[in-house]
């Protein structure tokens, strides 16, 4: 059974259809890249998978390990292993990052019927993960993303991904706003999570990220549909020729 199956998905936002029948299948262990021009619906797709309110699904299905994802609350999806690294992570003043990480992790574990982490185990885990991502401890004492630079926010998303160990990671423009070193560190973090049991959907505009996180499949999205899928060489082709040819196709 596929890990994620999006079938003929149609989505409206404020009376306007954004996704016009999108189909995508992702199996365990695979890395998929989604590329496509601005406004083609990439973030919309990621939001609908994560369960963000405000989107009306008018047709189609999203199955996660065969279960209907659209019937689940966002927190249930998270507990089942769906993780979205946001294109624009929000700042949450007054909620210390450490407290947030712990509350979120334990909420997911509780929902799965697992024991909550003890304080020492949790701290140990956070310390390991943040060290590997080059995130200083005092950043974790601050409010969630508050005063973080663009790159720090993105690294914080990867930190959460590493901590929650989801089975489906959707990375929405993880590379935007990262400098070259930060990009490599974050990509290493993502690669460390690659496993036969885990799949990734990497949304990006740039081939460069895909040099670090090498995809099994590349999809081109245009005007709310997947208009072409291929191997990693498709990304190179896009980089060379742009989206023009596909926009006509869509």
């Amino acid at each position: 059974m596929a890990l994620l199956e999006v079938k003929d998905l149609k989505v409206r936002v404020e009376e306007r259809e954004i996704l016009h029948g999108l189909t995508l299948t992702v199996n365990e262990g695979e890395v998929h890249a989604i590329m496509g021009p601005n406004g083609s619906g990439k973030s919309t797709l990621s939001h609908v998978i994560a369960g963000k309110p405000g989107y009306e699904v008018t047709d189609g299905q999203i199955l996660f390990r065969g279960e209907d994802l659209l019937e689940m609350e966002p927190n249930e999806r998270a507990a089942k292993g769906v993780f979205l690294a946001f294109q624009y992570p929000v700042e949450i003043p007054g909620v210390a990052t450490m407290n947030f990480l712990r509350t979120a992790l334990n909420a997911q574990r509780k929902a799965r019927g697992e024991d909550e982490y003890s304080t020492p185990d949790f701290l140990k885990k956070v310390r390991e993960v943040s060290k590997s991502l080059n995130i200083p401890q005092d950043m974790l004492k601050r409010g969630v993303n508050v005063g973080f630079s663009g790159g720090e926010k993105k690294r914080n998303e990867v930190l959460q991904m590493a901590l929650f160990e989801p089975s489906l990671c959707i990375l929405d423009e993880m590379d935007s706003g990262l400098d070259i070193d930060a990009l490599r560190i974050a990509a290493d973090g993502v690669n460390a999570l690659r496993s036969p049991k885990r799949a990734m959907v990497v949304i990006t505009h740039y081939q460069r990220l895909l040099n670090y996180i090498v995809p099994d499949v590349v999809h081109v999205m245009s005007k709310g549909r997947v208009v072409k899928s291929g191997g990693k060489e498709l990304a190179l082709e896009l980089e060379a020729c742009g989206y023009g040819q596909f926009e006509d196709a869509a």
Binding site: G51, E73, P74, N75, A79, V90, I92, F100
Partner: peptide, 24 residues
């Protein structure tokens, strides 16, 4: 709402997400 959603997407049930934001 975007903060509430962020917390829910990280596993917090809606009421817990709201409580956390109210406490903050």
């Amino acid at each position: 709402n975007s903060l509430v959603f962020y917390l829910r997407a990280r596993g917090l049930p809606e009421k817990d997400a709201k409580s956390l934001l109210i406490k903050a």
